[in-house]
Simulated scan of single mutants.
Amino acid sequence: MNTDPRWITTPLTADLVRGALELERTPHGLLPHRLPARARAQCADPQLAMAETQPSGVRLAFRTAATAVELDTLPTKRVYTGAPPRPDGVYDLLVDGQPAGQATVSGGSVLTVDMATGTTEHRPGEPGTLRFTGLPAREKDVEIWLPHNETTELVALRTDAPVAPLPDRGRRVWLHHGSSISHGSDAASPTGTWPARAAALAGVELINLGLGGSALLDPFTARALRDTPADLISVKIGINLVNADLMRLRAFAPAVHGFLDTIREGHPTTPLLVISPIHCALHEHTPGPTLPDLTALASGRMGFRAAGDPAERASGKLTLAVIREELARIVRERAAEDPRLGYLDGLALYGEDDAAELPLPDGLHPGADAHRRIGERFARLAFTAPGPFADVP
């Protein structure tokens, strides 16, 4: 920790953090949560607990004339048994909305995950420090986007000039929920996830509730969406339901209706966009569950396989093709009484041709280039006329 008296230590408070629904005071500092405590109390799933503390879309945002910034954090690194080491999480620096640097924090705690057995082991560690220098010597907006895939406790913020919260710029708030693809799996950095890219192009404030492995139509997630102020809302539904082999077609349609009904309780007229799954050859016509590809792991790479049987569709098992058809029907029927409800086919964001050009590295998640393409297409399809978010003042 830097103790140079020339540095100013600014208390880490909620008015300096954007994109989190709740901040938990820990022995080290502040832990951003993307689901509120009430929601977390209703589900003991360790996958959800890990996903919602990984701060995708969460950033420190402040106004300052500082030319140097230091941030102490305590990251939790993930290690998958038998898989190649994961790189340290990336912090993106934006100055007046433009990319101005990247950094990482080494060390920290370690969560070891054995995908073959489902067991985990947590080894505590110590905080580390990232530093950005050479910033313009003028008043400016500064944002530090936290690693989208690395649980991060905020410990201390130091600068060489005073810091103030960013003023309200009057930008619309876009609230998005989805799976690990929305969370940002395999994106290069936190501003490189497809929702972050789309938000930057559209000039909106992002709250990203993309929850890896956990977009499962949970009622507590619907209530979190219901209770979060927003000008625009989107929900990307489907892939995790197949991954988990969670429900059959009979349960799926009522669950979608209930999820949308709950959101509408708090946002009766807010533009609400339902997005179906992007192309994923594993599960286009083959149900789940999705399991680790142990052959891939043995060769030192991450991979997945579909463990279902296409014949099981007859008994109501879900595939991505079935889900797209059902979501389109549900939205079409509801839209007669809900004109601000829209539907976007995920294949328009990433389809079979895209998969041939930019294949999913592990068979399930888009890589960095595909994230960029999806974000740019979403910005065009949703935020420009005649897109559903284009006409919102």
Rank of each mutant, 00 (worst) to 15 (best):
T104N: 07
A116M: 13
L130W: 10
T76W: 01
T112W: 09
T117W: 13
V90C: 04
A100F: 11
T117G: 13
Q98P: 05
G82S: 15
V79W: 01
A83E: 05
D96F: 07
P85N: 08
T81M: 05
A83D: 15
T117V: 13
G118M: 14
D114T: 09
G89E: 01
T120P: 04
Q102N: 10
T133K: 00
V113E: 12
S106D: 09
L74G: 00
P84T: 05
P87Y: 03
A103W: 12
P127Y: 02
G82K: 15
L93M: 10
G101T: 08
V95G: 07
R131F: 08
V113L: 14
K77Y: 01
R123P: 03
R86T: 06
V95M: 06
R131Q: 13
G107F: 08
V90G: 03
P99T: 04
M115E: 15
R123K: 10
V79R: 09
G118Y: 11
G118P: 12
E126T: 11
L93S: 11
G108Y: 03
P87E: 04
Y91H: 14
G107T: 13
S109V: 08
G107P: 11
P124W: 04
S106T: 08
T112R: 13
D88L: 14
S109Y: 06
T81Q: 09
E126M: 07
G89I: 00
V90I: 14
P127S: 09
A83C: 10
Q98R: 14
S106A: 12
R78A: 02
S106R: 14
A100Y: 11
G128P: 10
T129E: 08
G108T: 02
T104V: 14
G128N: 07
P127F: 03
G82E: 13
L94C: 13
G89W: 00
A103K: 12
T120W: 04
M115K: 12
Q102A: 10
G107H: 10
Y80I: 09
G118K: 15
E121K: 15
E121I: 05
D92V: 00
G125S: 01
L94E: 14
R86D: 09
D96S: 08
V90W: 02
Y91I: 02
G97M: 05
T133A: 09
E121P: 07
D114F: 05
T81D: 08
E126Y: 02
R123E: 13
V95T: 12
T129S: 13
L130K: 14
S106W: 00
R123T: 15
D92R: 04
G101L: 10
D114Y: 11
T119Y: 15
A116R: 15
A83G: 12
S109M: 03
L130N: 07
P99R: 11
G89Y: 01
E121Q: 13
L111H: 06
G107R: 07
A83K: 05
E126H: 02
S109Q: 11
V90A: 02
L93I: 06
T81F: 03
P99N: 09
P85H: 06
L94S: 09
R123Y: 03
G89T: 01
P99Q: 12
P85I: 09
T76F: 01
V95I: 14
R131D: 07
G108W: 03
H122L: 12
G125Q: 01
F132Q: 12
